[in-house]
């Protein structure tokens, strides 16, 4: 019946794992290779895999285009807002030390890096999704014979 049965089953198993791995890469980026750029691309790759297997319309229900547009701008604002917050607290732009009084353990630096990397994650993920939607929305569906 379904010509892509293996693809569907395997991808259903893999997609949650890819998303979890992307989040691990993001939040463990201080201690091991990783960070917002890599995590954003990996999570976007998971959603793109979903869209390739189950169709672009289903993917748009899971990750709506409005959400993508909002998050792309929100990531940039979160990054810039962290910088503005440090300015308001009396430091230089993106000088995270002022974010937390605990100077001995550099907690402010850790908070700042986390916020900034979250901004990177949101923007990279959303821009990758927006680009994919823009191209895939125009592409004709691949006929069955071409697989």
């Amino acid at each position: 019946m379904n010509p892509h049965l293996v693809l569907r089953v395997v991808s259903k198993l893999l997609i949650p794992l890819i998303v979890v791995f992307g989040l691990y890469v993001h939040f463990h980026g201080d201690y091991s290779p990783g960070g917002g750029f890599q995590a954003g691309v990996i999570v976007a790759a998971a959603v793109i895999l979903y869209a390739l297997i189950f169709g672009i319309e289903n993917a748009k229900q899971a990750v709506p285009t409005g959400f993508v547009r909002f998050m792309a701008a929100f990531g940039v604002l979160l990054y810039g807002g962290t910088g503005v917050a440090t300015l308001i607290l009396g430091g230089n732009f993106l000088d995270y030390d002022v974010l937390h009084p605990d100077q001995a353990h550099h907690t402010g630096q850790h908070i700042g890096i986390l916020l900034v990397e979250l901004g990177v994650l949101f923007t990279v993920f959303s821009v990758m999704m927006a680009i994919f939607y823009a191209f895939a929305g125009r592409a004709p569906d691949i006929p069955e014979g071409e697989w």
């Binding site: 960070g35 630096q109 700042g112 990397e117």
Partner: peptide
């Protein structure tokens, strides 16, 4: 900074301004 991954430290803190520019370019 006190985090083990130097690349993340330079990316997000020492050169955070550069990275901000890169994020704006991606946007």
């Amino acid at each position: 900074i006190a985090i083990p991954n130097v690349v993340t430290a330079v990316l997000a803190s020492y050169r955070g301004f550069d990275t901000f520019g890169e994020v704006v370019v991606i946007f």
